Amino acid sequence: MHAALTFLLLFLMAGTIVPVNRHFRQTPGGIPVFVVSNGVHTDVVVPLREPQTGTDWLEQLQQPQLTARFGSYGYVGFGWGSEQFYLASYGGNFPKPGTVLRALLPGPTLMHVDFYQQAPRPGKRVVALQISRAQYQQLTQLIRASFRPDSTGATVLRNAAGYTPEDFFFRGRGRYHALRTCNDWTNATLRKAGLRAALKAPLAGSVLHQVRRSRFHAAAQ
């Protein structure tokens, strides 16, 4: 038992420093995307409307009240996580230990959607990337696939409000558990879109560590 636990911890730690898509290079003048962390959780932030690909996230979300409120905003962030953890952390409260422990077992998930008036400012917890049109299209497909739609194919708004007046929760696909965390979702989404990511990223720092090492094409240096 102890040996298995030790192996698991070593795998998680090693996964942080092992890059996937190590040859990924940013595209000068490409589509801007951001990986944003609050120190515990990570989101992927993208343009609310992206003209090269014709992507309009307000159309994708199909929520007239959100379109009316956020039509003038510039960016939107997406995260994935445990429903019970998210809903227990309203009002700035950290969930009780029992809630945290129960979240380690497979449970339902939500998509966290956060609207930004302007692009996040790069810093300690914000990494800016520029990616190609093809990579962005793949990224948006992966994000869309993480929403659990209703029988008509429409997204399902779980709560009329989130932590602030600018963020909301939608029903998500998949099950959250100890080996499939919110940061694993961000990391896997970046990896599957062809961007630099970690082999395994259970922590926010694991995600930021690899995306921060992304470089531009040699021609731009």
Rank of each mutant, 00 (worst) to 15 (best):
Thr42Pro: 12
Thr42Met: 03
Asp43Thr: 12
Asp43Glu: 15
Val44Phe: 09
Val44Gly: 05
Val45Ile: 10
Val45Thr: 04
Val45Arg: 05
Val45His: 03
Val45Tyr: 01
Val46Asn: 00
Val46Lys: 00
Val46Ile: 15
Val46Ser: 00
Pro47His: 08
Pro47Lys: 10
Leu48Pro: 08
Glu50Pro: 01
Glu50Gln: 10
Glu50Arg: 02
Pro51Thr: 07
Gln52Cys: 10
Thr53Pro: 02
Gly54Val: 12
Thr55Pro: 06
Thr55Phe: 09
Thr55Tyr: 10
Asp56Gly: 02
Asp56Asn: 15
Trp57Asp: 02
Leu58Glu: 04
Leu58His: 11
Leu58Arg: 13
Leu58Gln: 07
Glu59Cys: 09
Gln60Asp: 11
Leu61Lys: 00
Leu61Tyr: 00
Gln62Lys: 14
Gln62Ile: 03
Gln62Pro: 03
Gln63Lys: 15
Gln63Leu: 15
Gln63Tyr: 09
Gln63Val: 08
Gln63His: 10
Pro64Arg: 15
Gln65Tyr: 08
Gln65Gly: 06
Gln65Met: 13
Leu66Asn: 08
Leu66Pro: 07
Leu66Ser: 09
Leu66Asp: 01
Thr67Cys: 08
Thr67Leu: 04
Ala68Met: 12
Ala68Arg: 15
Ala68Ile: 01
Ala68Tyr: 11
Arg69Gly: 00
Arg69Ala: 09
Arg69Pro: 02
Arg69Phe: 03
Arg69Asp: 06
Phe70Asp: 03
Gly71Asp: 07
Ser72Met: 14
Ser72Asp: 15
Ser72Val: 05
Ser72Ile: 04
Ser72Gly: 13
Ser72His: 14
Ser72Pro: 09
Tyr73Gln: 06
Tyr73Cys: 00
Gly74Arg: 13
Gly74Phe: 06
Tyr75Thr: 01
Tyr75His: 11
Tyr75Phe: 15
Val76Cys: 05
Val76Leu: 04
Gly77Ser: 12
Gly77Gln: 00
Phe78Asp: 01
Gly79Pro: 04
Trp80Ile: 04
Trp80Tyr: 04
Trp80Leu: 02
Gly81Asn: 07
Gly81Trp: 01
Gly81Ile: 09
Glu83Gly: 00
Gln84Arg: 13
Phe85Val: 06
Phe85Leu: 10
Tyr86Arg: 04
Tyr86Leu: 03
Leu87Tyr: 11
Ala88Val: 04
Ala88Gly: 12
Ser89Ala: 02
Ser89His: 04
Ser89Cys: 02
Tyr90Trp: 11
Tyr90Asp: 12
Tyr90Lys: 11
Tyr90Met: 15
Gly91Arg: 13
